[in-house]
Simulated assay, not measured.
Amino acid sequence: MTPKHIPECLINTNGINVNFDSFGNEDAPVIILIMGLATQMIFWETKFCELLASKGFRVIRFDNRDVGKSTWCDDLNVPSHLALLANILLKRTLKAPYSLNDMAKDTLGLMDGLQIDQAHVVGASMGGMIAQALAIRSPERVKSLTSIMSTTGNRQLPKPKITFLSNLFKRPPKQADQFVAFGLSLWKALHGNTYGFQKEKVSELLRLSVHRGLNPKSNVRQLAAILSSKDRTEALKAVKIPSLILHGDSDPLIPVACGHATAQAIPHSKIKVYSGMGHTLPDELLPEIANDILELIGGTS
């Protein structure tokens, strides 16, 4: 039986509107999915949400601030590419328009607005960083933590090649066909060569992203939020929440060493490394990833 789907709607929280939808019964235990840099909630694919919800959970996905149908922060400054590079290469202070902690507060606000006391929190890439920040600042609200292809924020950890990182600085084209071509190139590079790249599916998601609302400045503002955040390693050592770290050994953006560092920082956390996985969630691995998350959740009280 297909889980119940509650269509997209807005909720006002933390001074912004957050757009979300959900799968499963509204009185079931909650799993909240937090997406990554400048990426809309639809990249948590429906079949993945339904797979989790079919096991007796209410699965909520949402657009982060500045993305999709949630509030765009166009009244805030956009850091220059020079400022971003100076931060990366020279460790110069970067003034970000908002922080990962602000985005964690957005998630808490969504929970408050929906009267959710606790949730199992799953974050991918930047979403994993937000999930970590949430577990650090409000551990009583997080039932379990799953951090996927993410990092602690330790600047000493391995980094992507600067040529690859520079792609994240590029402002996406506004014209739909050009945006899809741009997005396909980036997603294919992130995906790697081990698993089949689903060109038609990704193209459809990118076109839907244009239709839902494409904010070309969000990638720079959100990248600034990542770069300006402090190293979470010491704070993560105090996290007592059941935690799972998932990472691919072929991740070109956030190397797998960052996943191991996250697991080492969080006491008693578990880590699983998927052979050949890059910085996406391949179709072939979705059932296994869902089962690994569900296994963690099943072990919580």
Rank of each mutant, 00 (worst) to 15 (best):
M1K: 11
I6K: 12
C9M: 08
N14C: 02
V18R: 04
S22N: 12
F23G: 06
G24P: 13
D27Y: 06
I32Q: 09
I32N: 01
L33Y: 06
M35E: 15
I42N: 11
F48M: 10
E50R: 14
L51M: 13
L51V: 09
A53T: 03
G56P: 13
F57K: 09
R58Y: 03
R58T: 07
T71Y: 00
C73A: 10
D75W: 08
V78W: 04
V78N: 03
S80C: 07
H81T: 13
L82A: 06
A83I: 02
L84Y: 01
L85F: 05
N87C: 12
R92M: 09
T93K: 14
Y98N: 02
M103P: 01
T107K: 05
M111L: 04
Q115I: 01
I116G: 01
G123Y: 00
A124V: 11
S125Y: 07
A133Q: 05
L134N: 00
S138I: 00
R141H: 07
K143R: 14
L145E: 06
T146I: 03
I148R: 12
T151A: 15
F169E: 12
F169W: 07
K170L: 15
R171P: 13
L186P: 06
W187S: 04
H191Y: 12
S203G: 10
L206M: 10
R212M: 12
G213N: 03
N215T: 10
R221I: 00
A225S: 08
K230L: 04
D231H: 05
E234C: 14
K237V: 09
K240P: 06
L244Q: 10
S250V: 02
I266Q: 12
H268P: 13
S269Y: 12
K270N: 09
L281V: 15
A290M: 09
L294S: 02
G298F: 06
G299D: 11
S301I: 14
